[in-house]
């Protein structure tokens, strides 16, 4: 029961803060929160691979990009295409991309996996750059209408209203992250963790390692695609440098590391730290990446578990001291 009450309180606090945020912070800050939520969803989807499957992908932008382009192209070419189908189709397209690449991806691990995903990411980047009649090259796809969210008989919500779009994004991202969290608790999620620890043993216990990995690539791709789609809806323009550049792949890796590798919620914390920090630094200098890059190096060297572990370590130390003090009082 204790756990239930704690979770309930956490949800109430979260909903209150998230609900009040746009009214307290104003439009500019609300837009930063939209970016944050989208980025957190993207980072968590990558973390399914990094922390749970144990493979480092340098090409996650591919799925983000497929999602973003799918949304942009659908809305550009099909007049009046509704919002939710666009979002879901973008996720499915990215998931399908993961499935298509999986026969090659499941064969390698370690450095080779990192390089193979880098290669696929760059392939996609260059293809989208070169086939400008479809993708608009570096200028990208722009000028599509953002459809409203129609709930038949109830309301039609205008997505161009920053506050409304903020709520929409938060709901989508929270649902996405919760589904992924649930996934890690399912039997298949357990098998994935087993593959990370010892894939040969998983094989010897009767599981199909490659099929399982293919499922996780598709799932991770799906949610990265959803994040990309949200980006497309938010920005109103999708270009190669915006969604497929190699930095788009590197950024969530930094968020995961800073937040805490090997944990589920660390990447969300890391996304928050990165985005807020960048927003703060940008007021003083154009070169925010220099600071985040340095922070990243410091975290890798000095806090390899990220800030979640740092926090947990502090809590443990605090508890130990309290215990010691209470013992001293008794004595």
């Amino acid at each position: 029961m204790n756990k239930f009450v704690r979770n309930l309180i956490m949800w109430v606090v979260f909903l209150a803060v998230a609900g009040a945020a746009p009214h307290v912070l104003g439009i500019v800050k609300t837009n930063v929160l939209v970016e944050l939520a989208t980025f957190a969803l993207f980072a968590v989807s990558l973390n399914l691979l990094l922390s749970f499957t144990g493979v480092l992908s340098f090409g996650h932008a591919l799925f983000y990009g497929v999602g973003a382009y799918t949304t942009a192209l659908l809305l550009y070419h099909v007049e009046g295409f509704p919002l939710i189908p666009a979002l879901l189709l973008s996720g499915l397209a990215a998931g399908l991309a993961g499935l298509i690449l999986s026969p090659l991806l499941v064969r390698v691990t370690g450095t080779a996996f990192a390089m193979l995903t880098l290669a696929f990411g760059q392939l996609m980047y260059i293809l989208c750059l070169k086939f400008r009649e479809v993708t608009g090259g570096e200028d990208g796809v722009a000028g599509y209408d953002i459809p409203p969210l129609n709930i038949p008989g109830v309301a039609s919500l205008d997505m161009l209203d920053s506050t409304v779009f903020y709520y929409f994004t938060v709901v989508v991202c929270v649902i996405g992250i919760m589904i992924m969290w649930f996934f890690t608790k399912t039997p298949l999620g357990q098998v994935v963790v087993g593959i990370r620890d010892n894939s040969l043993r998983v094989d010897y216990l009767g599981y199909r390692v490659r099929h399982t990995k293919a499922i996780i690539f598709a799932l991770s791709g799906f949610f990265a695609g959803i994040a990309g789609s949200l980006f497309a809806l938010f920005q109103g323009v999708v270009s190669t440098d915006g969604v497929l550049h190699v930095m788009v792949s590197f950024y969530p890796i930094m968020a995961i590391l800073i937040g805490g590798i090997g944990t589920f919620f660390g990447p969300i914390l890391g996304s928050g730290i990165l985005i807020v920090l960048e927003d703060m630094i940008m007021r003083y200098t154009e070169r925010a990446e220099l600071v985040t890059g340095l922070l990243f190096i410091i975290v890798v060297l000095y806090v390899p578990g990220g800030f979640v572990w740092l926090w947990m370590g502090l809590v443990a130390r605090f508890k130990a001291r309290k215990l010691r003090m209470s013992k001293e009082v008794e004595a």
């Binding site: 608790k185 998983v202 009767g206």
Partner: peptide
């Protein structure tokens, strides 16, 4: 549990929490 799941043929289940089984 990894072995027990496999024995029971629960290999691709991603719709139930494992601790609820």
């Amino acid at each position: 549990r990894m072995g027990v799941l496999s024995r029971m043929g629960i290999r691709f289940n991603m719709f139930q929490r494992v601790d609820k089984l």
